[in-house]
C-alpha cells in the first residue's frame, strides 16, 4: 500500500489525537474520501448478504477504522431488501447508500433502472482471481462476499454416517418433516439455489422434496437456526453459518454436497443519488480491504483478497467443486422459478 506520509502528517494535525494512529495508514485515495465521508457523517447499508449480527459487526469494524462516520446496517432477506430499495427508487427518495445482496440479478435490475452509481473500489485489483471475473464488467457492482450453499445438520440428532451426502439425498423419505429450506421469493440466495437444483435435477426434485414436507423459512439463516435449535435436523443453508456455529460449539456441522457447493457470490453496489455518496464509496472500498478479508476468514468465510488464505480446514474456492448460476440466467430464470416454487409448495 502506498503511504503518503507528508499528507498524513498534515491531515493528522487537523484531527483529534485519537484518530492519529488510524490516519497514518490511510492511502492517498482513502484520505480525501474519508474527509468527505466524515462531513456526511453516516452510511446506510442495505444488506442481505450477512446475518444481522455479522452486518452489525462489519459496521463496527468500519466505524473503528473510520472514526466519526456512523455505519447503520439495515438487514433483511434479499427479497425484502430489494423491495425497500425499489420503493425508494420509485418514490425518487433514495435513502440507502450501499446495497448488498446474494442475488446479483437484483443489482442488474437496478443498473438497468440507472439506480446504481458507476463505481468500483480501487482495491478490486487485489481481489482473488476466482472472484474478480464475477464483478460487473461495466463497473457498477462487485463481489462483496461469498456464501456458498451447502447442507447443515444437527450433530445431536443425526449421526455422521446417516447424514446426507448430496443434494439429491435430501429427497430421501427418511428425512420426512426434517428438512428446512428457504423461500426463493424472500431469500435471494434461495432463488439461485432453486434455479441451480432445477438445472441439475429438473422440477421433479422439488416435487419429491415437497413430499418430505420441508419447513420453508424466509431467510437462509432461519434454516440454520432451526437446525441449531433441533426443530429440524437438516437445513439447506449458507455453510458460513454452520461453520461459524460449529467453531463456536453449536451442535451443528457442514456437508459439502457431492454435486458441489452452490455458489451465489454476493454483490454490492453504491446507489445512485445516495444521501451519503462519499461514505458509500468509502464503505465499498472498505469491503475489499485486507482488514475485511481477514475478518471474513476469522468467521470461517471466504476472504475476498488474493493475499488472505481461507481459515484452517476450509478448502479454498479455486479448488472446491462449485455450481454457479450465471447472473444473466438468473435474471431470466428467477421469476419463473419463484412462480413454479409457489405452485409446487403451495405458498
Amino acid at each position: 500500500m502506498l503511504k503518503n506520509v507528508l499528507a498524513a502528517a498534515a491531515f493528522a494535525a487537523l484531527l483529534p489525537a485519537t484518530a492519529l494512529a488510524q490516519s497514518e495508514d490511510f492511502t492517498a485515495y482513502e484520505k480525501p474520501l474519508y474527509e468527505a465521508a466524515t462531513a456526511e457523517g453516516e452510511v446506510i447499508w442495505y444488506t442481505s448478504q450477512f446475518t444481522t449480527e455479522m452486518s452489525e459487526s462489519a459496521c463496527q469494524l468500519f466505524m473503528k477504522r473510520y472514526e466519526g462516520i456512523k455505519c447503520s446496517p439495515v438487514r433483511a432477506t434479499g427479497g425484502v431488501t430489494f423491495q425497500r430499495v425499489m420503493q425508494e427508487v420509485q418514490a425518487g427518495a433514495v435513502q440507502g447508500d450501499v446495497f448488498s445482496t446474494n442475488d446479483q440479478s437484483d443489482l442488474l435490475e437496478l443498473k438497468k433502472l440507472n439506480a446504481l452509481e458507476k463505481f468500483l473500489p480501487q482495491s478490486v485489483e487485489f481481489m482473488s482471481p476466482v472472484l474478480k471475473p464475477m464483478n460487473d464488467d461495466e463497473g457498477y457492482f462487485f463481489v462483496s462476499s461469498v456464501s456458498p450453499y451447502g447442507i447443515a445438520y444437527n450433530t445431536n440428532l443425526v449421526k455422521e454416517e446417516d447424514a446426507p451426502k448430496s443434494w439429491s439425498d435430501l429427497t430421501d423419505p427418511k428425512w420426512k418433516d426434517q428438512v428446512a429450506i428457504s423461500h426463493p421469493s424472500f431469500s435471494g440466495s434461495a432463488g439461485l439455489w432453486t434455479l441451480a437444483m432445477k438445472n441439475l435435477f429438473g422440477w421433479e426434485y422439488f416435487e419429491k422434496l415437497n413430499e418430505g414436507n420441508p419447513q420453508i423459512g424466509r431467510s437462509t439463516a432461519d434454516g440454520y437456526n432451526l437446525v441449531v435449535s433441533g426443530e429440524r435436523k437438516i437445513a439447506v443453508t449458507a455453510i458460513a453459518l454452520s461453520r461459524q456455529g460449529e467453531a463456536e460449539g453449536q451442535p451443528v456441522t457442514t456437508v459439502v454436497p457431492s454435486e458441489g457447493l452452490m455458489l451465489p457470490p454476493s454483490g454490492t453496489g453504491v446507489l445512485a443519488g445516495a444521501p451519503h455518496p462519499n461514505a458509500a464509496k468509502l464503505f465499498a472500498e472498505f469491503m475489499l480491504s485486507e482488514e475485511y478479508s481477514v475478518w471474513l476468514r476469522d468467521l470461517k468465510r471466504y476472504p475476498l483478497r488474493a493475499g488472505v488464505d481461507t481459515a484452517e480446514g476450509i478448502e479454498p474456492l479455486d479448488t472446491s467443486k462449485v455450481i454457479t448460476v450465471p447472473v444473466t440466467d438468473a435474471v431470466q430464470g428467477l421469476p419463473e422459478v419463484q412462480d413454479k416454487f409457489r405452485d409446487i409448495f403451495g405458498i
Binding site: 444481522t52 425508494e88 431467510s219
Partner: peptide
C-alpha cells in the same frame, strides 16, 4: 411495513426482520 425507511424503522419492523433469521 411498506412505509418505513432506513432511519424510521419501528420496533415491529425490526422484530419482523429478526424473525426472518429465526433469532428468537
Amino acid at each position: 411495513v411498506f412505509l418505513v425507511g432506513p432511519n424510521t424503522r419501528v420496533v415491529s419492523v425490526v422484530l419482523l426482520d429478526m424473525s426472518e433469521e429465526g433469532l428468537l
